[in-house]
């Protein structure tokens, strides 16, 4: 992270995060559609993996493009969210010193 005044959320921007997972799914399904068993008897003659894969790739690209076009600006000092008692995950570790 640089010390420019405007810091963007980068890889942890929720849109990039969605884009990455859906994109990976898209790649796997597209490859399955091209090289895997198409199982056309199950799907009624449609190459379901291929089409879903391609659609996921488009959606993933859309999310990433959106995040790039209008990046989320993270303020300089972000308070750590307080531990939420309704979610009993292990407690937050203290923030590392800079």
């Amino acid at each position: 992270m640089s010390d420019t005044t405007k810091k963007t959320a980068g890889a942890f921007d929720i849109r990039n995060f969605i884009g990455l997972l859906l994109g990976l799914y898209g790649i796997i399904l597209t490859l399955m559609g091209l090289f895997g068993d198409k199982e056309l008897d199950k799907t009624g003659g449609v190459n379901a993996n291929l089409w879903t894969g391609l659609a996921l790739l488009v959606v993933a690209a859309g999310f990433m493009a959106w995040a790039k076009a209008r990046p989320t600006v993270v303020p300089d000092h972000v308070e750590r969210p307080p531990d939420d008692e309704t979610r009993p995950a292990p407690r937050n570790k203290p923030k590392p010193k800079h």
Binding site: A9, D13, L21, V74, P75, V78, P81, A89, P90, K93
Partner: peptide, 25 residues
């Protein structure tokens, strides 16, 4: 893959890896 993403972000959040995670959470 799904579990890796979900568990990964949970761990990253607790280790305070990035301000952006705190911001979204």
């Amino acid at each position: 893959l799904y579990f890796a993403f979900v568990m990964g972000i949970g761990l990253a959040a607790r280790r305070a890896v990035s301000d952006s995670i705190d911001f979204f959470l």
